[in-house]
């Protein structure tokens, strides 16, 4: 091929341009550690990475949801434990209050029971972050309202929450709730903590009945019904303590699974986008060498011509 005056500069220029482009690409890959940055770099990988990153953010969100659930479960557990103590003491009283006790003693027991009821109502009206824990989804008002007579004896405790619970997601499509319902006598849905017609629990009414029987000295009724009723209430509380524990361990497991998934996602994203640093740097070195060689040889060739040898 005939090589003319502009062949050298032109081809040198295009070689230098392409070497420069390659250097630039490799340098930015080395600097960012990424093989894919813009959609044009690798459209297929880009799409997968977008999906993976979205999933990773969702997993992180589920972790936050789980943390919120755990918080509520812990708060509920604390309250349920308190209620269990009330229930334990009430049972003790129901057992101690036999026909050997004097009416004065029974009255004292009744006084203690009134206080226990008030304590239980206070516990059942506990709040977490400003929301009433046991009011179902009517969390903006106290679930239990207590009425007393002139002497301070509790005459009734009524439930004004509802029977549904708010569930939120802890994994894709899986919703749970760690909230316990105060009362559910509908025979379906989540089990009530203090009253449920399926287990026969009706904590406040049973306590009030015991209080009234103590006041009237009716130890026969205490023996015949109250002890058994309080037993049902205790069973019901134990059921809730158990299910709270089960829920917490389920949350732990889900959280661990989420953590694993997010590690996997991280690895997958890395696989799709990250540059192999060793390879990139070796290539960059290669390209730099080629660039220098092109500059040097080009400079030499361009500077010499026949003119140098003509006098």
């Amino acid at each position: 091929m005939r090589v003319t005056a502009n062949t050298f500069p032109n081809s040198l220029l295009s070689q230098l341009t392409s070497l420069n482009q390659r250097q630039n690409r490799l340098q930015s890959q080395a600097a960012t550690g990424q093989r894919v940055r813009l959609p044009e770099d690798d459209p297929v990988a880009m799409r997968r990475v977008l999906d993976l990153q979205a999933e990773s953010k969702t997993v992180a969100q589920y972790e936050r949801n789980i943390a919120r659930h755990e918080e509520l479960a812990n708060a509920s557990f604390g309250v349920i434990k308190g209620l269990k103590q009330v229930s334990d003491r009430a049972r003790e009283i129901s057992i101690s209050a036999d026909n050997l006790k004097s009416p004065t003693e029974l009255k004292l027991y009744a006084k203690e029971l009134t206080e226990l009821i008030k304590q239980a109502v206070q516990a059942a009206n506990s709040k977490n972050r400003g929301d009433y824990i046991f009011a179902g989804t009517k969390i903006d008002q106290p679930p239990y309202v207590m009425t007393t007579d002139a002497e301070g004896t509790v005459t009734g405790v009524s439930y004004q929450g509802n029977t549904s619970l708010a569930e939120s997601e802890i994994a894709s499509g899986i919703t749970i709730t760690t909230q316990a319902l105060g009362e559910n006598n509908s025979g379906s849905g989540p089990r009530g903590l203090l009253a449920d017609n399926r287990s026969g629990a009706d904590f406040f009414n049973h306590l009030i009945a015991l209080q009234d029987h103590l006041l009237s000295g009716d130890t026969a009724s205490i023996e015949a019904t109250d002890r058994e009723n309080l037993g049902k209430d205790e069973d019901n509380l134990l059921y809730h303590i158990g299910s709270n524990g089960a829920l917490q361990s389920r949350l732990e497991t889900t959280k661990a699974l989420g953590g694993q998934r997010s590690d996997t996602l991280e690895a997958l994203v890395s696989q799709e986008t990250d540059a192999d640093l060793a390879e990139t740097l070796v290539r960059l070195n290669q390209t730099q060498t080629a660039y220098e060689a092109a500059l040097q040889s080009g400079g030499k060739i361009l500077s010499s011509s026949l003119l140098d040898y003509l006098r």
Partner: peptide
């Protein structure tokens, strides 16, 4: 390059 080779000026 081909055109340069045909039509280009060689010093």
């Amino acid at each position: 390059r081909q055109r340069d080779s045909v039509s280009g000026v060689s010093l």
